[in-house]
Design a protein around this nucleic acid. Structure first.
Ligand code: FES
Ligand code: FES
Lengths: 143, 143
DNA sequence: AGTAAAATATGATAAAAATCACATTTAAGA
DNA sequence: TCTTAAATGTGATTTTTATCATATTTTACT
């Protein structure tokens, strides 16, 4: 469903959501290891997210990555779109085109409503929500 | 959601479902072109499907690919599993593991029910159903 | 100012997925 | 039985995705 890069991105950002703050920055290697993602790979992804202002970073000693409280309001969908590009989630199951109810492919009616529901949730769920889930022990941040 | 190969496979099989029969076999090039898939690529996929008895074929002059009426009973899910492998649809959104409600990842609750519903439908929908849809003009076989 | 510790930029390599090419096998029809 | 038309098998090439490496920039601390 998601690319590898997006999976990694979500895991990393969620890790920051739980463990970081403006006073508690985290170095790349201390993110990569606990979420089980190659260090150099996640570095590239975090840099892209940082450039898009989805996460924050500072260079130099005592530097690292972190989330501001504003950034805890980021919607999950924003991360997905930033990494995978917008098209991916709205593409038709059978063609390259955008899914289109006026010209539905043969699988469209099997999936459209559910896919929509999922997309809606990804659009309204923010990092803070997921952090709360994790801190309550209702879900985990998998390896 | 699906790999390119699975998309192509479904389109090709659906094309056969609509246009072929034991008396009306279709050559690779006459499948590849209308569904807009590279000839050599779809050939490989069709060969795999043929070996798994999801479609039929005969060699030589007047040969080609076709579906028997038995094969019109094939479930969409069978095609997906044959091409992409079973794991893909049941894997967790964030990890390599199988999705597991007893140990849910942070996105699990956002998608589980809907993904399940989709999977159920893919498991109970057969090619004949989709063919009917297409022939009634309720859905299309996209390029 | 100088040094060291961090992210950043850029690019190289490896692995996987998609695509292309061709020689082999099978079967129909002359 | 010979020729030809089709799928089949095997493997090569290209493209995309994932991974690795390294030089540069920024910043804190001395
Ligand atoms: S048109 Fe294909 S999934 Fe909607
Ligand atoms: S455990 Fe991750 S999607 Fe179910």
């Amino acid at each position: 469903m998601f690319s590898n890069s997006t999976k990694y991105a979500i895991k990393a950002v969620l890790y920051l959501a739980v463990h970081s703050s403006e006073e508690q920055k985290i170095m790349i290697k201390d993110i990569a290891e606990p979420i089980n993602v190659p260090k150099h790979y996640i570095a590239k992804i975090l840099q892209a997210l940082s450039k898009k202002d989805i996460i924050s970073s500072t260079k130099g000693p005592k530097g690292g990555f972190y989330l501001t409280s504003d950034q805890l309001q980021t919607k999950v969908m924003q991360i997905i779109e930033t990494v995978d590009g917008e098209e991916r989630l709205n593409s038709c199951l059978l063609s390259l085109e955008k899914c289109n109810s006026d010209n539905p492919c043969s699988l469209h009616h099997l999936v459209f409503d559910e896919k929509n529901k999922i997309n809606e949730r990804l659009k309204m769920t923010i990092l803070k929500d997921l952090r709360q889930h994790i801190m309550r022990g209702e879900s985990i941040l998998p390896l």
